[in-house]
């Protein structure tokens, strides 16, 4: 049983996620502590991706070498967005810092789908509607201009090729410069799963409401209003839902302090 303080070894741990091969080793009698305490081994670089390579784990010397290179790689990594490429890159980064591995085919397919939807929306609403497309971890993602938000969502719901009739999740996120409202839409008949987002500045945040289109957005938008301060124009009943009516402040904002 190792009993040195853990802190130094933790910083040297390669910060990227790995694809560990589930070994058929003896799991000592259900002690989860030992399993967690085991440091993971980096699989050798290759076309790594969620299709895990069943390679045996490397020995410690190589692990130590990788950890030195890893700390440099992690700085580059945290700045970028777009998760799909991330999960493929890390395993290759430490050993071969020059060439990033090819992006995961699922991410490429998602981006292509997002571009298709972009074409549909541009045809209906004009070129300024879609600001950006991408892939949010294998889900096609579109960034819609704030003014055309409800029109874009309505257009995709009514379009027979896409038929996004089910709103699965709606969330708001507070970033340093803007607040982002994200909605995940699903077509229950055709199987499409699309992520759409829009951004609004933090002061005077206003977004057109989706409640007339999807009744479920009613409470979701009230929650985003309550906790983040985004007003949804056209919402039938814009009031606080989780906090009481006289509460001031928006708790989920990053600059919200409990001590007022």
């Amino acid at each position: 049983m190792s009993d040195e303080p853990r802190k130094p070894s933790e910083e040297n741990q390669p910060s990227e996620p790995r694809n560990p091969s589930p070994q058929r080793t003896q799991d000592p009698g259900g002690q989860g502590a030992e399993a967690i305490a085991r440091t993971a081994m980096n699989p050798s670089p290759g076309p790594a991706g969620p299709a895990a390579t069943k390679q045996p784990p490397e020995k410690t010397p190589e692990g130590a070498e990788k950890s030195v290179g890893a700390s440099g790689a992690s700085d580059v990594k945290t700045g970028t967005a777009g998760a799909a490429a991330q999960s493929a890159k890390p395993a290759a980064k430490p050993a071969a810092k020059k060439a990033p591995p090819p992006p995961d085919p699922r991410a490429v397919a998602a981006k292509e789908k997002a571009d298709e939807i972009k074409a549909v929306l541009i045809a209906k609403l004009g070129a300024s509607a879609v600001v950006e497309t991408g892939a949010a971890h294998f889900t096609p993602m579109l960034l819609i201009d704030r003014g055309k938000w409800s029109d874009a969502v309505t257009a995709l719901r009514d379009d027979p090729a896409w038929d996004l009739n089910y709103l699965e999740c709606m969330a708001g996120t507070d970033y340093p410069e803007y607040i982002e409202v994200v909605v995940y839409l699903q077509s229950t008949e055709l199987g499409h799963f699309v992520c759409m987002k829009t951004r609004t500045p933090r002061d005077g945040a206003k977004v057109p409401s989706l409640a007339p289109i999807y009744p479920v957005a009613n409470w979701e938008e009230r929650e985003i209003f309550d906790l983040l301060g985004v007003t949804f124009t056209g919402h039938p009943d814009m009031r606080r839902i989780m906090m009481w009516e006289e509460f001031e402040g928006h708790p989920l904002r990053k600059d919200y302090s409990v001590w007022d």
Partner: peptide, 28 residues
């Protein structure tokens, strides 16, 4: 067999957005 995969001690999720839903008892 084993019941826990080899994961790092400190789990860091790569940057990005992820959503996944399961069938809970009351819905998704």
């Amino acid at each position: 067999g084993p019941v826990l995969a080899k994961v790092p001690k400190l789990i860091r999720v790569p940057a990005g957005e992820y959503y996944s839903g399961i069938e809970g008892t009351r819905g998704e």
